[in-house]
Write a protein that binds this DNA or RNA. Structure first.
Lengths: 270, 270
DNA sequence: CCTACGCTTCCATTCAGTGGAAGTTCTCGG
DNA sequence: CCGAGAACTTCCACTGAATGGAAGCGTAGG
């Protein structure tokens, strides 16, 4: 079983050979830096990267050097690595993010000014709400959301709105899985969620309360493009109170409509 | 010279062989998407990518497929490719960009609110001012700057500030090259620029007028970190007027100081 | 001083990547 | 409707680039 010069184990043993392509290995290295939850951005040593990417050290060394020379990773004095500026530069050029952000930002600013609350802009990506933009003042309730974060659809304001207007097969698939309960008030029953989605469509607005983060509530509204499709959602997140503030709801609606109009939407339905 | 089965030309001919590594080729593909100036984000066909990256079509095809499967590129219905969401997601995690932005944003918002002008946040990267953030209202004078843009140091407000506080060898090197004149009033004489930098250091503020874009002026101030080093600059860009508005200057100063304080700077020099 | 740990360099082996060419699909003009 | 051309996709024999074990280096800690 091991008569050979111990370099490639005798074929067909329990040890799996790594059949990833060079590209896949390069990507695995970047993926090692993906921040887990709401943590601060990572900085890793070579060995740590090798472990996370599941690559031999020498291979990691060589590939990391390639990333660094291009600018996708950067090496700090202390020998640690982090994501590089080049990624940021290319990242902000991504069409969806860039176009939506550019168009929406002025309206988000207005919304922030009139409400002084956290303002979120998110799109549907896979099974998550992906946060494209977040504005918040100095006081700011502590929240897990941040730009680039992915949060569940059923427990966030923007998420519910996005789900409410998503193709029915997406809804179907999403509700088919076990929805995580974050707080006692999180709605996780598929049928209850469906009922909610219908209400949101009827009202053109979602209200959430204490379903993701204790003490905070949110009001969200859909953003439509030229074709009338819902492509994003805006929300404000406020400290929970007993009363509904119609002014806040109006402000969220105004912002969503503003962005929609700027995207070329001319209300087909009233 | 061509007796061989015409697959790899007889060695040592005029045709250069491509000795780029797989990684370098993958990166060349992404670089093909780097927006040239202030253009809208690119969308390319496979052939166009192959040309820009200077790669054979079949190789491009395979490598592009790798990018797509990872999410670094995305393929649209019409067969065109563009930068993918994954890049955006990783890009926004880049430490410098993320930390600075998160901390600075509230102050930038304040600045926008009090002045109603374009607000910029930029850092020094190589020989350029790299724009990390830009806020602007609806009215907004048309500007070339945008998030992710690179603009020259000598013709922008933030650029001059960054240069004024840069290590002397950087200044040396920068001024050693030919500085482009964009408008009649652009200052391009090395000595004149040096004089200006000194004034900026003295005043803690830069004033620009009609040096990059006709009809617009800018006021910029330095942002310092815990160690007192200047790490970024804020500016507002206004329509050019004959009078200096001390209120605007104060607002820019306040914003810069606010961010500096948030970064841990405790004024060493008064 | 030695040991331990993490990083860097080296190099023989081999298999993944290469790219020319053939096949396929789409588009446009006649 | 057909045919030419362009753009994309698939195929596969060849080979040199990527691989990774091992040895070498540098630093820290006891």
């Amino acid at each position: 079983m091991s008569g050979k010069p111990a370099q490639k184990r005798a074929s067909g043993d329990d040890i799996a050979v790594d059949d990833r392509s060079v590209a896949a290995r390069l990507f695995a290295i970047l993926d090692a830096f993906a921040a887990p939850a709401g943590a601060t951005s990572l900085t890793l040593t070579l060995t740590a990267i090798a472990q996370r990417a599941n690559l031999p050290l020498s291979t990691t060394h060589r590939l990391v050097a390639e990333w660094v020379s291009w600018g996708g990773l950067s090496k700090h004095e202390n020998g640690q690595y982090s994501l590089g500026m080049k990624l940021w530069e290319l990242g902000v050029q991504t069409p969806t993010a860039r176009n939506l952000r550019t168009i929406a930002l002025p309206y988000l600013e207005d919304l922030y000014e009139t409400t002084r609350e956290h303002v979120h802009l998110a799109i549907l990506d896979g099974r998550d709400a992906l946060y494209l933009e977040k504005l918040s003042g100095h006081h700011a309730v502590r929240l897990i959301s941040r730009v680039g974060a992915r949060l569940p659809l059923h427990s966030t304001g923007v998420g519910l709105v996005l789900l409410a207007y998503a193709p029915s097969d997406v809804v179907q698939q999403y509700l088919a899985t076990n929805l995580q309960r974050f707080l006692p008030r999180t709605v996780t029953e598929p049928e209850a969620v469906r009922k909610r989605l219908a209400e949101i469509r009827l009202l053109g607005l979602a209200r959430m309360s204490e379903e993701m983060t204790a003490g905070s509530s949110s009001i969200a509204a859909p953003i439509r493009d030229r074709t009338g499709q819902v492509v994003a959602a805006v929300s404000i997140v406020t400290r929970t109170t007993d009363t509904i503030d119609p002014e806040q709801e109006r402000a969220v609606r105004v912002a969503a409509q503003g962005v929609s109009r700027a995207l070329g939407y001319r209300r087909a339905q009233q």
